[in-house]
């Protein structure tokens, strides 16, 4: 092995300055760096209230080498729409308008504007960097917080008891031309999806899994590993949905037990201590995964060989 990446090229569009204000090991900054490699300079990021409102720097500083438009918490999709409208009026069809929002700004407070923009098929790219809670405000649960997780509002005594909201299904229900999940641990997959998204006109949604070391109670060096484990344990599958209909799993995970993912993080301590709850979570993951596999099969008419190994109970 030498240069290990197909899609990521060295020194191509490195448009994020160091010195930004992200915590050590921030997954959201890895996601942004990789995304910028695809968009290049011809993009504007619309950032609602989220970690990235801070990361990009305190005035007068700015970390990205593209324009950024900061906006209110619930307005990422619509502010992006407004900018798209203005740029279209100015004939700037060559630039990408990218809503760059956290999970709270997407799954919760921003859902209405997101739904509006998705339904109108606005010509924007909406990327949610998902760290599974309100991290910037100090780790409160969001509707993206997964089953069993600790947050400051779902303490150890009463950890999150509802599964993560399935944003992809919500987007699929809008019949948007493109929706995909991605992970910072799989840069090639992420970049392929970004590239695909840039080739499509209309509303494009990318859900990128971005670990948060302080919020997930883990060491900062584990960000990428934990993201990888999320994929390999089927907790966060990598797939895409075209036109709300065609499901494609883009990476077949190894199907490791969920503990492999949980044990790297302090936030799942209550689940790890409770075998019953852990079994329940594992069952939930299996059901969700099997459902996704069936959708893939229904979309393509067959399953690749790798698929079998990932399914515990035979389909």
């Amino acid at each position: 092995m030498s240069w290990a990446w197909v899609e990521v090229k060295p020194n191509e569009n490195d448009l994020m300055h160091p010195g930004h204000l992200a915590c050590q090991g921030c997954g959201a900054t890895i996601a942004a760096r990789l995304a910028l490699k695809v968009f290049g300079k011809n993009a504007v990021f619309v950032i609602p209230a989220s970690c990235w409102s801070v990361i990009d720097g305190a005035w007068p500083q700015h970390a990205l080498q593209i324009p950024v438009f900061h906006t209110a918490f619930e307005t990422a999709a619509i502010a992006a729409t407004g900018i798209r409208a203005a740029l279209d009026m100015k004939g700037r069809h060559d630039v990408h308008v990218v809503a760059w929002a956290g999970d709270g700004g997407t799954f919760d407070i921003g859902l209405q504007a997101l739904s509006g923009a998705a339904e109108r098929n606005e010509n924007i790219i909406y990327i949610t960097y998902d760290n599974e809670a309100y991290m910037n405000t100090g780790i409160q649960r969001s509707s993206s917080t997964p089953l069993g997780a600790w947050t400051t509002t779902t303490p150890d005594e009463r950890p999150e008891d509802r599964p993560k909201k399935n944003m992809m299904e919500i987007l699929a229900a809008h019949r948007v031309p493109y929706a995909a999940t991605a992970s910072i641990a799989y840069p090639d997959d992420f970049i392929r999806k970004l590239k695909k998204a840039t080739q499509i006109k209309g509303f494009r949604f990318i859900h990128v899994f971005s670990p948060c070391p302080p919020g997930w109670k883990m060491a900062s060096n584990l960000s990428v590993r934990v993201a990888r484990m999320a994929v390999e344990t089927k907790v966060f599958p990598l797939y895409e949905i075209e036109d709300g209909e065609v499901y494609t799993i883009t990476h077949w995970p190894r199907g490791l037990p969920v503990e492999e993912y949980f044990k790297l993080q302090g936030r799942f301590k209550p689940v790890l201590k409770d075998p019953e709850r852990l079994a329940y979570v594992q069952r939930y993951i299996e059901t969700q995964w099997e459902r996704l596999v069936r959708l893939h099969e229904a979309s393509h008419g067959y399953l690749p060989e790798e698929a079998r190994a990932t399914i515990r109970s035979a389909i």
């Binding site: 011809n42 720097g57 700015h62 438009f69 900061h70 906006t71 700037r92």
Partner: peptide, 12 residues
């Protein structure tokens, strides 16, 4: 918003 002179508008 100016792509030739990229700035952040509304930074904290």
């Amino acid at each position: 918003i100016n792509f030739d002179d990229p700035r952040a508008i509304g930074a904290f």
